[in-house]
Amino acid sequence: MSDDQEAGERVTEVATRLFAELGYDGTPMQLIADTLGMPIAEVTRLTGGKQQLYLAVMRRAAEAEDRMLTSATDGYGATIESAYEVVDAVLDFYVAHPEYRALWMHRWLSDATDVEDLESQYVLTQSVDVIDRVRENIPDEVDPVLLVGTVIWTVFGFLSGGRPTPEQPTRHEPTPDEIDHFRRYLHAFVRRMLAPSG
């Protein structure tokens, strides 16, 4: 790997963290450069500018998600255990990669509105691919796009604030016990959504 490639990797990693924490709109290039201890002109030279850097960050996130989803759905069997494996893979991935979850959540809040088409390019493509792999045990009355979306929305929402309890009513990072509890909830949800009607 060349020096420029190594430096570019470092810039992408720092930008990923900052875009995840502050959003695209809230992260000036100067902050990225200052965090790296690098002149802004050098960051721009390495990346092509803020929008190109953001696109590289989002592409990296989508590629990691694709690898996880492909691995989780390869050899998928029309069994409830296979469905559990898919939702477990999604949950475990976003527990391990909160920065990717945060990047998408910023977009849901209208961040980076001048960067269009990422949802159709990545999210819709991923959803269609997953649906194609698991369609055989989705009942006719269940909308497969909404089913996949509901799993993602629920995982993102839970991991963003935990499970409110009388002891801890405020938003917080979920504990391992809370994640285990939530995993059981996801299994119950998927089991009921995939159960044939009648």
Rank of each mutant, 00 (worst) to 15 (best):
I152E: 14
E85P: 07
D129M: 13
W104N: 02
A102W: 01
T70Q: 13
F182E: 04
R184Y: 10
A89G: 14
R101P: 11
D140F: 11
A102F: 03
L103N: 00
P98I: 03
P164N: 00
E116L: 11
Q168A: 03
A56I: 01
A89R: 11
L159K: 03
K50E: 09
T125R: 14
G157C: 06
Y84V: 07
S82N: 11
R135A: 12
L55R: 09
A96D: 14
D114N: 12
K50Y: 08
M105N: 06
P166Q: 01
A62D: 02
L146W: 13
P144E: 11
R60F: 05
I138A: 04
A56W: 03
Y54M: 08
F182S: 04
V130R: 06
M68P: 01
A89F: 15
P144K: 10
I179C: 01
M68H: 08
V151G: 05
L118S: 02
R135S: 05
L159A: 06
Y100F: 13
V95I: 10
D111W: 11
A78K: 03
A56D: 09
E136N: 08
H181Y: 08
I131Q: 01
T47V: 00
E119R: 15
V86Q: 12
A112H: 04
R107Y: 01
D114P: 01
F156M: 08
L118D: 02
T154K: 07
L146G: 14
V130C: 05
H181V: 15
D140G: 14
V87D: 08
E116F: 10
Y84E: 12
T125E: 12
P166G: 00
D140H: 13
M68D: 05
R163V: 11
P169L: 08
I80F: 08
V148C: 13
E136M: 15
L91K: 07
Y54N: 04
A62I: 09
L118N: 04
F182Y: 11
D140N: 10
E81T: 07
V155T: 12
I138L: 10
S160H: 04
S160Y: 02
D66P: 03
G162H: 02
P98D: 05
S160P: 07
D117S: 10
V87W: 04
S160A: 04
N137T: 11
A83S: 15
V115N: 02
V95A: 05
A89C: 12
G77P: 04
K50F: 07
G48D: 00
G157M: 01
I131L: 01
A64W: 06
G48Q: 00
D180S: 07
G77R: 14
L55F: 04
Q126H: 15
D143Y: 06
Y54C: 06
E141A: 14
E136S: 14
R60K: 12
D74V: 08
V57D: 05
V148N: 13
L124S: 11
V87H: 05
I80Q: 14
E81R: 03
P144F: 05
G157Q: 03
I80W: 08
K50N: 08
Y94M: 09
F182G: 07
A83M: 13
L69M: 15
E167G: 00
P176G: 02
Y100M: 07
F156Q: 04
G75E: 01
A102C: 06
G75W: 01
G149Q: 13
T150M: 12
H106I: 11
Y94V: 04
R171G: 05
A83F: 10
